[in-house]
Design a protein around this nucleic acid. Structure first.
Lengths: 208, 208
DNA sequence: AATAATAGAGAGCGTCCACTCTCTAAATGG
DNA sequence: CCATTTAGAGAGTGGACGCTCTCTATTATT
């Protein structure tokens, strides 16, 4: 006899929030593993262990689900950065080599891949663009704020800091995409080393 | 009375090649304007002024069309670079500022946007990845060869030249995508200026 | 305990997809 | 000029899509 788990009694709010959380997580997983246009409402619902009908009870449309997912991603990025970087910041106030390396690793997270899918899709989808743009801008501001907060001495009042950081992230994004196609770990590591060298170069020059 | 164009008699080879060229161009346009997953065989055929049936006479599948399109894109990139850069190379052997600026402009071409769509889609589509990978690698090698050929004195025997160039292109790719969402021309120009400064920095250091 | 409101399941709808099939138009080779 | 081959049109097919609808299960309210 199977030991069926006794059905726990939950409030409606709990049911609702748990289901929504499962759907959003399933949406992220789908974006990462199968890409934007395979992230169908049915695929997400199945992965969340729910029916398609249940999905549409909580989200009025596929777009609404994607909007919620984008916001969840932006929230997680801040959490990731904070978790991995604040201890580094406390020990290596001057040298940001490790911080850059960590930034690269975070860039390789599943969440970033999901983010790419949304950003790319938004280019040719006006509705998605409208929805994604504010989340995108908020994320950018979050990055800058966090960098200044965690590395006040190194980055606090650096001119062009925001643009430098964005450029660094752009490089890592490109490396992530290229690495998927090249599948050459040695070169991948070389590219990282080069990027660190360039970043240090940029830092030392702009500091003066 | 409408002056109907007299039907020109063409050979089968001409008909075939003209139709294929129109289909490939239509495929590029579709990728640029509507994105990968809206680039359907019907949409491409209509845009080329042909029927869906005609498309499938020349291409055994949608994937075959995309493969041919990817190769056409890679070919055009070399042509673009050569056309825009060789006159620059002949006058400014030392300073590559203008060359970098031109590289950025080329990165903004419709063809590059089509290329992104394919690269991003290849991440989660194993079949497309198999088809796209060799074209991608060829394009990378083409870039390096051309850079060394056009700027022999500046880049000819620079260590890490290939990686530096790839990083530069990655930055421009990122800027292209971000610019679409930010829609802030002033900042876009700032990012370009910063990139040029970084590139010159990198050059001067690695040259030594 | 009875009623109302919400969560969820699952069938159904219209549309678009890649691709096939059949049929006509045009070019080729004898 | 005729037979064969190739180019192209367009209807048809099965499947997946976003979304709606109806019906049941669970929770909330009185």
């Amino acid at each position: 006899m199977v030991d069926r788990p006794a059905k726990v009694r939950r409030t409606q709010t709990q049911r609702r929030e748990e289901s929504i959380a499962r759907l959003v997580q399933a949406c992220i997983d789908c974006l990462v593993e199968t890409g934007y246009h395979q992230t169908s409402t049915l695929a997400v619902a199945r992965r969340a262990g729910l029916s398609q009908g249940a999905l549409f009870r909580h989200f009025s449309s596929r777009l609404a689900l994607l909007e919620r997912t984008a916001n969840e991603l932006a929230d997680r990025f801040i959490a990731h950065y904070r978790k991995h970087l604040d201890e580094l910041a406390s020990q290596d106030k001057g040298d940001i080599t490790l911080a850059i390396r960590t930034l690269r690793d975070i860039t390789r997270s599943p969440e970033q891949l999901a983010w790419f899918e949304l950003q790319q899709a938004a280019r040719t989808d006006a509705e998605l663009c409208d929805v994604f743009q504010p989340v995108f801008l908020r994320n950018q501001q979050d990055n800058v704020n966090l960098a200044a907060e965690l590395f006040p001495e190194t980055l606090g009042d650096l001119p062009m800091m925001s643009e430098l950081l964005q450029t660094l992230i752009q490089i890592f994004h490109g490396q992530t995409l290229d690495a998927h196609i090249e599948q050459n770990e040695e070169k991948d590591e070389q590219m990282l080393a080069l990027t660190i060298r360039l970043a240090q170069l940029g830092l030392s020059v702009f500091k003066a």
